[in-house]
Amino acid sequence: MRSRSLRRPETLVPLSSVAIMVVAFALIPAYTDSAIAPFDVYNTFQIFARLGLLALALGLTMIAGEFDLSVVGTYALGGMLAVQTGQEHWVYGLLAALAAGAVIGLVQGGVIAGLKLPSMPVTLATYITLLGLTSALSGGLTKTYSNASVTLWVDQTVLTFFSPRSLLTLGLFLLAAVVLSFTRWGRELRAIGGDRRASQVAGVRVDRLIVGTFMLSGMLSALGGSLLSFSLGSANPDPGVQPLIVAAAAALLGGLSLAGGRGNALGLLGGIMAVALLAEIVTVAALPGYVTQLFFAGLLGVIVVIDAPDLHRALVRQRTRLRPEGNPTSMLSRKRELS
């Protein structure tokens, strides 16, 4: 049985990326003037909390063979709803955000599963719609959250390195890891990502699973947005594309594949920790904003190019010096890699 083998990409990629980033993190004193303080670790977990739920939401849809571009829209809307409806009590804000996330996921999942539409154009349209809706709700302005006790509570230091926000995010990751590894739902999720038709024939209720996954993805993104708003004490109507870039990079570093059917929550946790460590290193090194921007863009760009299916084929062709039309073996090897 190969399933526990370290050489599988969903184990190898996150492990090596975390290892590289931990080494780079430990070497911070070598290339900056500052030593590593416990605060740096705390801050790494804060960055993790900021993007973890978004990456988990995106990752779940990627495992199912879909791609939910709208997560950033839901993230923005959730953050805005949490601030605007949660001024009296944070529970109302959180509930409103979660409900909105669930409804968005229900609609998207229903359209994608019911009409057999590809998820990319649907979630792109939803993303545009949600950005517009968030901007319309706030009048295009950043809204402040006046309940300062909530802001202080979610970011207070717990056990030196953590905050309630990062502990909650970690807890959800562990829950997702257990569910994905040990329940039927987790196995079925990978099955529909790997080969949808075969899993349908095998009796998986594909449509229900897709709707459920999108609802979960919507709720996780909305929760991530709400927690961020509570922590910042404000909500921004347009978070830009950076959260999506970082979440996608984290998911791919976490051993997930754009083709679907591959990955687990612990690998995803590794991917997002690697990205959080990188973000903290960049912060400690005090690079200008645009350099950070280039760093993350370059990271995602490199991963996407490495993940590109025809690149392997072209490399094999180069190595074997065969003409494209006479090379069925490379196609086979590519298919085997994907499965």
Binding site: Q242, Q293, A297
Partner: peptide, 8 residues
């Protein structure tokens, strides 16, 4: 890819 390049 274009999300990444837009940022770059």
């Amino acid at each position: 890819l274009t999300i990444a390049t837009s940022f770059a």
